[in-house]
Simulated scan of single mutants.
Amino acid sequence: MGRTRIFSSSKFFQPSDGEPVRSIVTESKDAVVVAWYIKPGQAIPAHTHPNGQDTWTVLSGKGDYYLDKAGTTKSIAAGDVVVAHTGCVHGVFNNGDEPLVFISVVSPADAGYQLVSLEDSFALHPSLIIQSTGL
C-alpha cells in the first residue's frame, strides 16, 4: 500500500510549559516535517541548518522571526510561509497573546542543526535568560 501521505497536524501539536516540543509528523531521507506549538513568551532559539532549508507554514499566532546573528527580527503571523535557505539564521520568539502554531519542513532530513548566539538576544527578549537554549 505504501507510506501514509495525509496527516492531521492537530494530532502532533504538544503544548509545553517548558521549552517548545519538536513533534515529528513524518520523516524520510528527503525531509522532516515537524509540528510546533509555541506558547506566548516561549522561543525557538536562533539556529541554522548548514546543509539544508527550513520552511515554515504559520497556521495561527504571531512572533518575532530571527533574521541574523545581530538579532534582527521581522514579524510573522498566521498565513505566512517563511523560508530559511541553507545556512540562514532563523528562530522565533512568540510575542503574542496566543500560541504560535506552525509546520516546519526541513529538507533534506540531514540538513544539520547549529545553535547561533545572538548578539542582542537578551536585550530583545529578557525572558530568554530563564529558558533553556537547547532543543
Score class of each variant (00 low, 15 high):
Val32Tyr: 02
Tyr37Pro: 02
Tyr37Gln: 06
Pro40Ile: 04
Ala43His: 14
Ala43Thr: 12
Pro45Glu: 09
Pro45His: 09
His47Met: 03
Thr48Ile: 15
His49Asp: 04
His49Leu: 08
His49Lys: 04
Gly52Pro: 00
Gly52Phe: 00
Asp54Thr: 05
Thr55Asp: 09
Trp56His: 10
Trp56Asn: 04
Trp56Ile: 06
Val58Pro: 00
Leu59Gln: 10
Leu59Glu: 09
Leu59Arg: 04
Ser60Val: 08
Gly61Arg: 00
Lys62Ala: 14
Asp68Glu: 13
Asp68His: 04
Asp68Ser: 11
Lys69Leu: 09
Ala70His: 11
Gly71Trp: 01
Thr72Ala: 08
Thr72Phe: 04
Ser75Gly: 10
Ser75Lys: 15
Gly79Leu: 11
Val81Ile: 15
Val81Ala: 12
Val81His: 10
Val82Asp: 03
Val82Gly: 02
His85Pro: 12
His85Ile: 14
Gly87Ala: 08
Val89Cys: 11
Val92Thr: 11
Asn94Glu: 13
Asn94Trp: 08
Asn95Ser: 13
Gly96Lys: 03
Asp97Cys: 09
Glu98Phe: 11
Val101Cys: 07
Val101Ile: 15
Phe102Ser: 02
Ile103Ala: 00
Ile103Lys: 00
Val105Lys: 02
Val106Leu: 07
Pro108Tyr: 01
Ala109Glu: 10
Asp110Val: 04
Gly112Ile: 01
Tyr113Ile: 09
Gln114Leu: 13
Val116Gln: 01
Ser117Asn: 15
Asp120Trp: 12
Ser121Trp: 07
Phe122Ile: 14
